[in-house]
């Protein structure tokens, strides 16, 4: 997935920045204004075409309808933007999950401190029945591309 690949590079980039700073330090002030590393001459990245299969897959996973070609273009631009991260040299740098990854994980005692707020919880729900949230029937598989009403069909 492009999103995941992009994400991994992003972490690497953070890690690179962190290598010169105290690890785990927080606060935007400490971001290095003069990095040692420089982006090599910006080559125009090739615009990747999103395939029909990928669009179909994404629509299924995200339950999102791209609706029209404008949406697809926006997606392609987003991918292109994220792809810039591939330019960062991450050779030999351990990936980083978060700037807080060296912090202690606080452990809570096993005590009951919350709950009993059904009314407040259900306030936000668009549909409820008695004390339940009401949802549309779950996980109806999206119909196959040929069968569903999508602009993607016209392109076939």
């Amino acid at each position: 997935m492009w999103a995941l690949r992009g994400g991994r590079c992003l972490r690497a980039a953070w890690s690179w920045g962190g290598s010169r700073l105290a690890r785990g330090a927080t606060g935007g002030r400490q971001i290095d204004q003069n990095p040692e590393w420089q982006l090599e001459e910006q080559k125009p990245l090739p615009q990747k075409k999103v395939t029909m299969e990928l669009l179909d897959h994404l629509e299924r996973l995200a339950l999102v309808d791209f609706r029209n070609w404008e949406g697809v273009e926006r997606l392609e631009k987003a991918i292109q933007f994220a792809d810039q991260l591939h330019e960062v040299n991450t050779e030999g740098i351990e990936p980083m999950d978060s700037v807080l990854e060296n912090r202690c994980l606080y452990l809570r005692g096993d005590n009951i401190t919350e709950g009993n707020c059904t009314k407040e919880l259900l306030q936000n729900a668009s549909q409820t029945a008695e004390e339940y949230f009401e949802a549309p029937p779950g996980n109806i598989p999206l119909p196959k591309l040929e069968e569903r009403e999508s602009f993607l069909q016209d392109s076939n």
């Binding site: 919350e114 709950g115 707020c117 059904t118 919880l121 949230f133």
Partner: peptide, 11 residues
Amino acid sequence: PPNSLVSFFDA
């Protein structure tokens, strides 16, 4: 009772 043992995080 339904949704009585739910915190804001759980939801």
